[in-house]
Design a protein around this nucleic acid. Structure first.
Lengths: 397, 397
DNA sequence: TTGAAAGCGCTAACAC
DNA sequence: GTGTTAGCGCTTTCAA
């Protein structure tokens, strides 16, 4: 009965110091009804149903968790000593340290993460939101790009000691206010999404793409869209294409606006026609329809098709065939995609990877620097893309 | 100076009660150096760099967060009153309540989630692990089934007030021990994965598929594999198929073992040959190769192909065509898949959905019941599948 | 109706 | 080298 509930109830006027030596302390710590003294005590919410010394087999509910103080009592040591022993801090004799560890192991002690977090002032928790398609939340995971970005973000963060929680697109304060988030990653925010504003207003650091540039507290990593367009167009141009057509979703995403601008600049610089077909929205259906528009019914047929939208490479290839094209004989094909099926088609499809893994790594590295080194400037970085050339874009012969 | 640091330092022997009326309390609460009294105090880790009444503009680091006590002081009320006002608890006069709320709003107060969690004894945090493919963690998100399952789990949980954190497959205790997890969802655990044992040993409730059945603390929801096989085989049988061949990954997953058993039973009952081809592992490459094995070089060609493995429907369709089949003329095709591309092929591919959304909903509902109503029995439930019949499996004419 | 204080479980500063 | 205790920010009981 050295430690428990010495502060609890009984004599409010009693001196609060040196409780262990206070001979008048009521002797109820280990007696029934458990640690719950007769005096000042919470209801069950915050309190413990059952004292460690009072298993009370009949009483429902799971056995209470072993706390640091339980280990200390069992080992005949103080909380401090046990804490130091388990955390490897402080200067303790090896025997004491081993004894504390052994007792903890034997009792199945696991530190309370929440208490540690409160103590540390941080929860090492990062929110992760995809802002796109707020009306159909969660579908983003079905896009290979976002699937990889999500996985890479979680993996990289965890390697740095941060856990990632998934948040729904277009979520209100109420959704995440109850979470102790150290920061939030907002992938591909749409222009009118409130979430970035809400987070910044709540003083939560935001990591996103370049569209948040300039706002205090917002940091960014982005894909180099101009580099992407340049690499793709240069590649098919080198293969002899003179009428490349781009299929781009008609979205407000920053990336696609930059793609459009870079495309225009590239065509102007070479005196080639700027051929673009816009898909009404992302998704296989609209993009495939746009592909068919791009390939069919033109006086002059295109000689290269560049799909800058998530679409299934085999579906694009089939569409081209239905329109009478031989790939790569009549038509060079490049898809901006992370979709692994591109490798398995015949011919395999050339893809441009937006490097979600690299984006995630750069983003988390930046985030950790901000959170841990107190890095202030809201700078950002541009991640290069990678072109994986396969048979679909290499002119035969 | 009513509240702050009354316990701190000064006179250890002094009575701890009625501090507000203790005229001898040191007058330093609002004076420099902030709330940091001269007495007992932590270092910066747990402490606050800057007192609320001491902005100290030059001092680096972000402004300290507004705490409940800051609002209380500003409004001239007690912590209790402000807390009750903001939470809508207690019996307060409307004016006081409004005043507290107004002050909190004006000061930008946001409650500290970690402190609330500590108080509440739960963090409302659920871990989410996919056990499959421990050697290549995170790739699961690229499978449409797991992508949907993950999204649906996060969405359903959040609707119930729980957040979901992503955990890597095959993770050690060290990865999640620092997180205050109320429970963990383990999707598709492999037989030899340690994680379920570790979690149960740590007394964290586990929600998984039926393979955890019977272990105390483990709860399950599963797909009805027999129903799945029955629906698919009955369907193609009704369309006239007499030599259906199944492509199944050679995995240790419970689902696939059950599929195999149900397939055998179905064939035996009808006196039809049990034709199975095993893919060496999951993934488009191996599965497509297995499909080609199934379709090519047999004396008698199959008249239906049932792909019970995540594979891209357009790729499967292309493989059938390369082997000279007309779908659905010579070959009925059904894929077990959540892949949306099945709708966009020509002909569209019949799919069997394993209903990840329904699995997630059932799982989270069960989980919430266990966590909140203290439901004890480690029961489970079986989720039915859904066959979406499209042209690829309907015999023409 | 309002407020004081206990205490959730942990860490670390400080006293011994 | 070990122990005592304050306190992270919050909720809630109990007293006034």
């Amino acid at each position: 009965m050295t430690e428990a509930s010495e502060h609890g109830g009984a004599a409010p006027e009693r001196a609060a110091t040196n409780p262990g030596r206070d001979g008048t302390a009521p002797e109820r710590a280990t007696a029934a009804p458990g640690r719950d003294g007769a005096g000042v005590r919470d209801d069950g919410t915050g309190g413990r149903r059952n004292g460690a010394g009072d298993p009370r087999p009949g009483a429902g509910g799971p056995a209470p968790r072993v706390r640091l103080v339980d280990v200390a009592r069992e080992a005949g040591l103080s909380k401090t000593t046990v804490s130091a022993a388990l955390n490897g801090t402080g200067r303790l004799s090896p025997e004491i340290r081993e004894k504390a560890r052994e007792t903890a192991r034997r009792m199945g002690y696991r530190p309370n993460a929440t208490a540690r977090q409160l103590r540390a002032g941080r929860a090492r928790l990062i929110g992760y939101v995809v802002g796109e398609l707020a009306d159909t939340p969660w579908t983003f995971l079905e896009s290979p790009y976002f699937a990889r970005l999500t996985g890479a973000t979680a993996a990289t963060a965890l390697a740095r000691g941060y856990a990632v929680v998934l948040l729904p697109a277009g979520s209100l304060q109420s959704e995440w206010a109850a979470l102790p988030l150290d920061a939030v990653v907002v992938a591909d925010p749409v222009a009118d999404d409130r979430i970035v504003e809400d987070l910044l207003a709540a003083r939560i650091p935001v990591f996103s793409d370049r569209s948040v540039e300039g706002r205090p507290g917002a940091h960014w990593v982005d894909v180099d869209a101009a580099d992407a367009v340049g690499q793709v167009l240069d590649h098919v141009h080198a293969q002899g294409a003179r009428r490349p057509v781009l299929v781009v979703p008609d979205s407000t995403t920053r990336f696609h606006r930059e793609v459009d601008a870079a495309h225009g600049a590239w065509c102007a610089a070479r005196g080639l026609p700027k051929l673009t077909v816009r898909a009404a929205e992302p998704g296989n259906g609209p993009v495939i329809r746009a592909v068919e528009t791009a390939l069919g019914g033109r006086p002059e047929r295109p000689d290269a098709l560049l799909v800058v939208a998530e679409a299934s490479p085999p579906l694009v290839l089939d569409a081209a065939r239905r329109h009478g094209y031989d790939v790569p004989g009549d038509l060079l094909l490049v898809c901006v995609s992370e979709d692994e099926t591109a490798v398995h088609t015949q011919p395999p499809v050339t893809t441009l990877s937006l490097r979600p893994d690299a984006v995630a790594e750069a983003g988390i590295a930046h985030l950790v620097a901000v959170l841990e080194q107190g890095l202030q400037e809201t700078g950002g970085s541009l991640v290069p893309v990678r072109l994986d050339v396969r048979a679909s874009s290499v002119r035969p012969g």
